[in-house]
Amino acid sequence: MRYHRWFTPWVLVIPALAWLLVFNLWPSINTVILSFTNARPIGGGYFVGLKNFETLLHDEQLRWALLNSVIYMVVCLPFLTVLPLLLAVLVEKKLPGITFFRTAFYTPVVASAVVVALIWQWILDDRGLVNGMAEKLGFISGPLPFLSDQWLLLLSAISLTIWKGLGYYMIIYLAALGNVGRELHEAAAVDGAGPLRRFVHITIPGVRGTMILISILISVSALRVFSELFILSGGKGGPGGRDNSVVMLIQQYSQGFEGNLGYASALSIVLFFVTVVPMLVLARLNRRGAEA
């Protein structure tokens, strides 16, 4: 039995549905269409067949970008699955002032990636805090080129991403920890299990599902990295453009007279397939774990 006129739900749903169709579904289809054209940022363009995809195969910058993305993901994954969980355990107990600490730990998440990248750019500068202190303490004789060496720049961006992500995943774990039965912890404590054993045998299995979800989020966002690398490299993508990410390449092709939205769309399709892989792998892992 219905208690409303047939069109009422549609009136409520239509704005959101219209947005979904115009700004999500249609662009997904249009990305595929555009990838077969040489559309320009200002308009125009015509069908060029598979030319963009042929260019992809020989694009050296794309090869570097894909390598960087994989390194980004592989380094971020262990740090960002483990450290935020430890933080969540640390701020879980309601000590006096804990709200202050939770809020403070979340601050890097709230700040724009552009803001934090500019802050780190200054800290990692040749004459910045890190190099200055390291030289003072005698660890190094000259400044380390954090922002101009291909690999150090990538590593700097990765550390920035990890630092900025700590609070975000901490909050997700914190919500999950609330669902881990307190009785289990109490029972284990009574049976003589120390904090470490309880962490390994109760906390970790209790947040297993969240951990897999978080791994997916970390992998996908590592593959989508843009602002950190863009700002730290001054928008240039490092020496010889070898510190680009796939999204940085997409952005570069989206602008100016040299811009090519067709090729940018082909790159977007590459990005889509790259991000789908970790999702499928981890979703499979999740299913197998649930059956076991």
């Binding site: 999500n24 990305t31 997409i250 940018a264 977007s268 399709i269 990005l271």
Partner: peptide, 22 residues
């Protein structure tokens, strides 16, 4: 439909979104 779009990172459609906005 709403669920399906979650697997799609925003950056993938950003170019054609720009075309739509244009």
């Amino acid at each position: 439909l709403f669920l399906a779009t979650l697997v799609l990172p925003g950056e993938v459609t950003i170019i054609s979104q720009y075309v739509t906005v244009r």
